[in-house]
Structure formats: structure tokens, C-alpha cells
Design a protein around this nucleic acid. Structure first.
Length: 318
DNA sequence: AAAAGCCCCTGGACGC
DNA sequence: TGCGTCCAGGGGCTTT
């Protein structure tokens, strides 16, 4: 699931349930995810108010009134399930959810236009791989489920967030003002690695993953097999490709966020409201299909780069 | 510094 | 139906 648009969607979905709310209890069901959970994890979270939720790259940040920040990474298969409050109590979660379905952005309290993907509103029992359960003062529960356990949670003092090893080396946010052709050309200048690998490097642009790199390069009409250095001229100034790539990255991420992210594989059979953007993929997972660019007539091919699948049109991506 | 490879883990899809 | 194989959104770590 989780590249930048999916993490952003999860953050937006959790905000109305968590932001400004007190956690009354936290259940830790196992000692570790990818890494050991923090010492006294449940204790340090219990009775704390989540003052705000934030996102940096693919990390979700829960700021707490204790001054600590919970860093959450969803890994490959991490997801959150929201179980609303008991009927009648005060909450912004959907009032009468149908089993396994989200009523949709309605008057139930989810703001109009709010992305609802990646979530499942149920009143079910504990499921396999439910590793951490957060109970809020409103009676809602937020359950973290992660079959592969590539995700992790860390607690760090807010003052040390920016210098934390996971945060310190991160590149710029692709949706911020920092992503521009001059920056990207400067970082790409002289690089021999494939463009695909370059764009996956979180130290360059923070938040892109395997899907959206393929989609962005298709939109920009650039082959993922080119050397990253193709973004810069000999003196380090941006090339035309670089100029095209900037809006391509931004546009595909914005479109994906608007669709509530993408849902595939681990989530294919999940009930509930899921992201919708997978239907808008133009190349990802479309090996052998005709290129959808108007007038192209080429074919999408799957190749392997750095051990991972890349999809691109061999005709219009040069 | 940059690049390449390996590893963590579980489950679903597919072929025989 | 059952078993083996391959593959999956990530990223840290080690080796060249």
C-alpha cells in the first residue's frame, strides 16, 4: 500500500478520530513489529492527548501532549482500522456504519471531500495481525494491523524529531515548494544510476515509491532506464526532461490523494472504503497492455530494476 | 559518495 | 485439493 498518497490518506482519515483526543488505553499485542516497540510503549501513550497528526515522506507523525512524537511507518502491509464509538456517544466517526462498509463522505462527520481510502469501519472482534489497539476518550478504537510486520512505531522527543536518523537524511517533500527542476537537476547531476532508482531514493525526493515513480515517468515521457544524470546538462542546469518530470510527479501524487490512494494486493479483498487510484494507473501492473497515451500505440512492459518491477511504455518513454 | 545486493516477514496468486 | 514457487507498496544495512 503505502507510498506518500496512501500515508497522507491514512493521516487524513485518522485525524478526525485522533487529533485533539485523549488516548485512554493502548493495547500492545506483541513485543515487536519490524523493530522492538518502544520501552513501556503502552504506558507512555496512555492518557496522552494526540495534539496533531503530521506526515513526513512515508512516515506518519502523532504529536503528543507529553512532548513526544509517535513515528509510524506502515511498511508494506500496515493499515489502520477505525472502530467507531458506541452508538449515542460523541464522536466524529460514522454513526451507523454498515458492517465492513464506510458510509462515505456524508453528514456523519467526515468532512466533505475527505479521503476515506485505506480504512475499514467495523465493529468486529480481534483479527489476526492486529498488533496495536488505541482506545480514545470517545470510545473509538484505532487498530494497527500488519501481516508482514515491515512497519514500525517509535517514540521520540519532539525536539529530537528533525535530527532523528530516520528524518535527518530525508529529501524534499514532492508536494512542497522545494521540489523544482533546479533542485532535482542539482541532485541528479553526474549520477549514473537509473532514473528509477534515483527517484526511489528517499534522500532525494521523500515519499515516492515503486508505483508512483513508474506513473510519474510515464506522464513525463521519460524512460526509467535512463541514467539519472539525464536530468541535468553538463553545467548542472535542468534539461527539458527534468522540467517535465516536476509537474508529472506532483500531478500524479495529487490525483492519487484525491482518489484516496491506491488499494491493491493485500487490500484487494478487504471490505470497506479503499483507495481508488489503482484504476487510474497508466502503466503500473499493466505489462503487455497498450499504452494509454493518446496516439502513442506503444506497449507497456514490465522490467526489473534493482530487484523490483518497473512498468513503462517502450514507445513514448524515451 | 554512489551503487548494488541482501535481508526482514506473511500471504495471495498461479502452475502443476 | 494440495503443494511448491514467485511475487508484493519499504527501507535499513553491508559490501563493493
Amino acid at each position: 500500500m503505502p507510498e506518500l498518497p496512501e500515508v497522507e490518506t491514512v493521516k487524513r482519515g485518522l485525524e478526525p478520530v485522533l487529533a485533539g483526543r485523549r488516548l485512554v488505553r493502548v493495547e500492545q499485542r506483541r513485543p515487536d513489529l519490524r523493530f522492538p516497540l518502544p520501552e513501556r510503549f503502552a504506558e507512555r501513550l496512555a492518557c496522552r492527548v494526540v495534539t496533531a497528526l503530521d506526515r513526513r515522506a512515508k512516515y506518519m507523525l502523532w504529536h503528543l501532549d507529553s512532548g513526544e512524537t509517535l513515528i509510524v511507518h506502515l511498511g508494506m502491509s500496515g493499515r489502520f482500522t477505525i472502530t467507531p464509538h458506541a452508538a449515542g456517544s460523541r464522536s466524529v466517526a460514522p454513526r451507523t456504519p454498515r458492517q465492513g462498509r464506510v458510509p462515505g463522505p456524508t453528514s456523519d462527520g467526515i468532512p466533505e471531500g475527505q479521503a476515506l481510502g485505506q480504512f475499514m469501519y467495523v465493529t468486529g472482534a480481534t483479527a489476526a495481525h492486529d498488533h496495536v489497539v488505541f482506545h480514545t476518550e470517545d470510545g473509538a478504537t484505532v487498530t494497527y494491523n500488519d501481516p508482514r510486520r515491515f512497519g514500525f512505531m517509535l517514540l521520540v522527543p519532539g525536539t529530537e524529531l528533525d535530527t532523528h536518523p530516520l528524518m535527518r537524511g530525508l529529501g524534499i517533500e514532492p508536494l512542497g515548494n522545494g521540489l523544482n527542476a533546479v533542485y532535482l537537476a542539482m541532485r541528479a547531476h553526474g549520477r549514473k544510476a537509473d532514473l528509477k532508482a534515483f527517484l526511489l531514493d528517499q534522500r532525494i525526493v521523500a515519499g515516492l515509491g515503486n508505483i508512483y515513480v513508474s506513473e510519474a515517468l510515464h506522464r513525463a515521457g521519460i524512460s526509467p532506464h535512463r541514467a539519472a544524470g539525464c536530468l541535468a546538462k553538463s553545467e548542472g542546469r535542468p534539461t527539458g526532461r527534468c522540467e517535465r518530470l516536476i509537474p508529472a510527479i506532483r500531478d500524479v501524487l495529487i490525483a492519487a490523494i484525491e482518489a484516496g490512494g491506491s488499494s491493491l494486493r493485500d487490500y484487494r479483498h478487504a471490505d470497506g472504503a479503499l483507495g481508488d487510484f489503482q484504476h487510474q494507473f497508466l502503466v503500473y501492473d499493466r505489462d503487455g497492455e497498450p499504452c494509454q497515451r493518446a496516439g502513442c500505440g506503444g506497449m507497456v512492459r514490465r522490467t526489473i530494476q534493482a530487484g523490483r518491477s518497473t512498468f513503462h511504455c517502450t514507445s513514448c518513454q524515451r
